[in-house]
Amino acid sequence: MCISASPNRDALFLCPDFIGGISIRKRNNRVVVHLNDTELSKLEQDTATAGMCREKYIRLALMGITIHPRPPDSYKKVLLQLSAYGNNLNQIAHVVNATGKVTTDQLEKALNLLEKTWDYVEDTL
């Protein structure tokens, strides 16, 4: 059995290496790396910025994958709102395509939605 730190690093939990004599680990090779305080601090900062554990961060870095900072939690709300604005614009476009005509009211609604979208993105991000 191994002892692993939980994601919040406040508590420890046990994880079994074997169940019924069969290894359940997909990664059976362990590598120990010694870091000085500066290197460990940099690793902790980078993993927190990326929003992932040390092990995953190191594996991705070894594979040459570019690791980007985790987007803020507010991005989900922004995407949902932008999706709603996009759906409204799509409905207007569908009516215009079906009828082949555009009214001033439809154009004003579309322009208003585009302005709301731009303002929302500017205010949120």
Rank of each mutant, 00 (worst) to 15 (best):
S23T: 15
I24L: 12
I24T: 15
I24V: 13
R25L: 10
R25G: 10
K26N: 13
K26H: 10
K26G: 11
K26M: 10
R27S: 15
R27W: 08
R27V: 15
N28R: 14
N28Q: 13
N29D: 12
N29L: 09
R30N: 11
R30K: 15
V32Q: 14
V33K: 09
H34S: 09
L35P: 04
L35D: 05
L35F: 09
L35T: 04
N36A: 01
N36V: 02
D37E: 10
T38P: 05
T38V: 14
E39T: 11
E39H: 12
K42W: 03
L43Q: 01
L43H: 03
L43V: 02
L43E: 02
E44Q: 10
E44P: 04
Q45C: 09
D46G: 00
D46S: 05
A48H: 00
T49E: 05
T49Q: 08
A50G: 02
G51Y: 03
G51H: 02
G51D: 02
M52K: 03
C53T: 10
C53F: 01
R54Y: 01
R54S: 04
E55P: 00
E55I: 09
K56L: 14
K56W: 07
Y57G: 10
R59G: 05
R59C: 05
A61C: 05
A61H: 04
M63H: 12
I65A: 03
I65R: 04
T66L: 01
I67D: 01
I67R: 00
I67N: 01
H68K: 15
H68P: 11
R70I: 02
P71V: 15
P71C: 09
P71W: 04
S74V: 14
S74N: 08
Y75I: 13
K76R: 10
K77E: 12
K77C: 07
V78M: 08
L79F: 11
L80H: 14
L82Y: 00
S83V: 06
A84H: 14
A84D: 15
G86S: 09
G86K: 11
G86M: 11
G86F: 08
N87S: 13
N88M: 06
N90W: 00
N90A: 01
I92V: 09
A93L: 01
V95F: 12
V96P: 00
V96K: 03
V96Y: 03
N97V: 03
N97R: 12
A98D: 07
T99K: 06
T99L: 04
K101H: 14
